[in-house]
């Protein structure tokens, strides 16, 4: 490596959780999710080289450039993968969507009894 670039952007990093350790653990977890995806793409490259009957050397793997079809297939895989990794977020989102939807008719009902004309009744 011929140069080492700056790691942290100047400026205070916002903290999102009461315990700063949670911010760090989340950052590490996401980085691990990223590195797992990198490994998976490398596996995929090896499989595709084998299927094509090409030599599977480290140089061939490092130099592999996925074409558009392969990139699209990997995009689809990553979308599913992220849905799996972020399962807990999507659970919460589903719950929030339900309670927001539940609230909407109720608010409309309140508006209706308080001011039927404005509510379009």
């Amino acid at each position: 490596m011929s140069v080492e670039l700056q790691k942290k952007a100047k400026g205070e990093r916002p903290s999102y959780f009461e315990d700063p350790a949670i911010d760090k653990v989340l950052a590490i977890t996401l980085a691990l999710a990223g590195e797992t995806a990198v490994l998976r793409d490398r596996m995929d490259t090896i499989e595709r080289l084998l299927e094509a009957g090409q030599p599977v050397t480290r140089a061939a793997i490092d130099a592999y450039v996925p074409d558009q079809a392969v990139r699209e297939a990997r995009d689809v895989w990553r979308e599913v993968y992220l849905g799996n990794v972020l399962r807990i977020i999507h659970q919460e989102r589903e719950e929030l969507a339900r309670s927001a939807a539940d609230r909407r008719p109720y608010d409309e009902a309140v508006a209706h009894v308080e001011d039927p004309v404005a509510a379009g009744a």
């Binding site: 995806a37 990198v38 793409d41 490398r42 130099a63 450039v65 990997r74």
Partner: peptide, 10 residues
């Protein structure tokens, strides 16, 4: 290289 590209794609 292929790993660096995969990391950016992620």
């Amino acid at each position: 290289n292929s790993d660096e590209f995969a990391r950016q794609e992620f």
